[in-house]
Design a protein around this nucleic acid. Sequence first.
RNA 1: UCCGCCUUAGCUCAGCAGGCAGAGCAAGUGGCUGUUAACCACUGGGUCGCUGGUUCGAGUCCAGCAGGCGGAGCCA
Length: 462
Amino acid sequence: MEHARVKEILNRNKSGGNVVIKGWLKTARHSKGFSFLEVSDGSCFSGIQVVAGEGLDNYDTEIKKLLTGCAVSVSGELVDSPGQGQKYEIKAEKIAVVGLVDSDYPLQKKRHTYEFLRTIAHLRPRTNSFGAVFRVRNAASKAVHHFFQERGFVYLHSPIITASDCEGAGEMFKVTTLDLKAPPRDEAGKIDYKQDFFGREAHLTVSGQLEAEIAAMALSNVYTFGPTFRAENSNTSRHLAEFWMIEPEMAFCDIRGDMDLAESFLKYVLQSVLNDCPDDMQFFNDRIDNTVLATMESIIKTPFERITYTEAVDILLKSGKTFEYPVTWGCDLQSEHERYLTEDHIKRPVIVTDYPKTIKAFYMYLNDDDKTVRAMDVLVPKVGEIIGGSQREDRKDILLKRIGELNLNEKDYWWYIDLRRYGSVPHAGFGLGFERIVQFMTGMGNIRDVIPFPRVPGYAEF
RNA sequence: UCCGCCUUAGCUCAGCAGGCAGAGCAAGUGGCUGUUAACCACUGGGUCGCUGGUUCGAGUCCAGCAGGCGGAGCCA
């Protein structure tokens, strides 16, 4: 008899019949003559209570000794539970002990700190919190693909190793097979990367955007969703050295279409997670952050505010608030500014557009004022910037001028410039850190707790 | 990288005025016929982060280092 998942059993509309489940004990309560075992298989937030009586042939030898964490296979009858707190329970007819635990099993029935659980990342998926996090992460991931697939976007696998050092977004990890103790040198005494694996310097990708633009110029609408690496020495609750990024790119699209896509994307993913993981989301709302459900629902319902950078600066100047970093037109918006805009002033997500060209990347579309570019940042309460995007500069002469102004080397961008020579069209896209959105939905304070195995400066265990 | 706080049993934490190292949970043993972080009793469990200093005496005071956390910068 094939075994059932706990989720399916709990969703049944009536008890009765024989079931087989396999899972791990969340807790075991032993009394004289019988035991209650709560078995979880990760299929949903809740486990199911198993009642084991002393009539079982291995009751004295095995069942009585079961501890939290033991793996079991249970077959029995699904019955209505007379106790409080659960609809059904399983009256065990046979319990096979599949895997015992040593007595130093670190997970207990009480609350653990997230700091401690990070040190046992191989066991933390078994906790309520992390089970819920990973199910929500999965649901969000599924929603990302569904959203784009339903709209005819092509999933593009952009490279993880890149030899172009022109991506320009942050510090990169080097990829090499050279002997670091004695690398080959050229005549000037510099490391000779011609002898390296790729015949040139190579790095882990910091963005798939430029490759996504290539694909968009043929397939019209594409998206990437893959691992991304930043070698920055960032020690914060919002940064990882390895994270997952989503980058859609649309041909024949301007900044307005980009904003529309970003807004419907966020709403879609949030709604999908609410639909797929109601119990997990209820848990986050009850135990982690009692505003997550209300915030998500209001984001889904309310149109996002849209303001320009210039308007944002005005709002900040007129706010009467003193910020640690003073606001002037031309400065980059700091976390405190973004938070004031989205949390205090507008009180919902806001898309800020048309930033000064001096604080944005070379590839963003230059406005007619010659001062601002068609960039857009989506700011949400609590997290701040969750999406950053832009309409891309599709005019070759202006792109070349911008590359010159920023003292970049045209040669490094030869293929990117080529795209502006061969059938160039207006196009736009954005980037989104996947963990940021999972953080936002779950209310988890530290980004290290929404990815199974976090990589941060000084730490890559597991 | 900068600023601040923290580090005592497997976990969460007390401890003070510088004078024998504590509790709850977990684990072990026993008890209990419906539990829900079950309950009751008993037992075992410690390099008080590391190094140095002050002192008759340091978990406690001082310095340095390491690790963790929070905030900031960089950024998604």
